[in-house]
């Protein structure tokens, strides 16, 4: 596997993670189901992870990969909180469509 970074240019990873990131952003904006929105945010974070690992390997610098661990840590914590908030909402409304929640705009 060692020679893969000599075969695959960094640009490819940049493009791939940009595409994944944009799909995530698109999902956040286009979907109304809060759980799916949360999944799309996870997708965005994974695009970041991919790019970080790619940069880290190409630069020969371990900080990037360690950074990825912290992103995973935070993603886990965020998922916990996000899902508990969803449960909270569900208790109050029996549904998780974020755009049906418009109590605050009158």
């Amino acid at each position: 596997m060692l020679n893969s970074i000599q075969v695959i240019p960094i640009e490819y990873y940049l493009v791939l993670s940009s595409v994944l990131f944009s799909i995530g952003v698109l999902g956040v904006m286009i979907r109304r189901n809060a759980i799916v929105v949360l999944m799309c945010i996870e997708l965005m974070l994974n695009a970041v992870n991919l790019l970080l690992v790619a940069f880290s390997t190409y630069l020969g610098d371990g900080h990037g990969q360690v950074f990825v661990f912290f992103i995973m840590v935070v993603a886990a914590a965020e998922a916990t909180i996000g899902l508990s908030v969803l449960v909270l909402i569900y208790r109050n409304t029996k549904g998780v469509d974020i755009h049906q929640l418009d109590q605050l705009k009158h």
Binding site: V25, V28, M44, A47, L52, G82, N92, Q103
Partner: peptide, 29 residues
């Protein structure tokens, strides 16, 4: 419900912003 809704909006927007911020940090890296 309005408090829960605030929490959900704050959470989704916060997490979304974090994602964007991280991508920026990565590019700068």
């Amino acid at each position: 419900l309005r408090s829960s809704e605030a929490a959900l909006k704050y959470f989704l927007m916060g997490a979304f912003a974090t994602g964007i911020l991280l991508f920026g940090i990565t590019l700068v890296y």
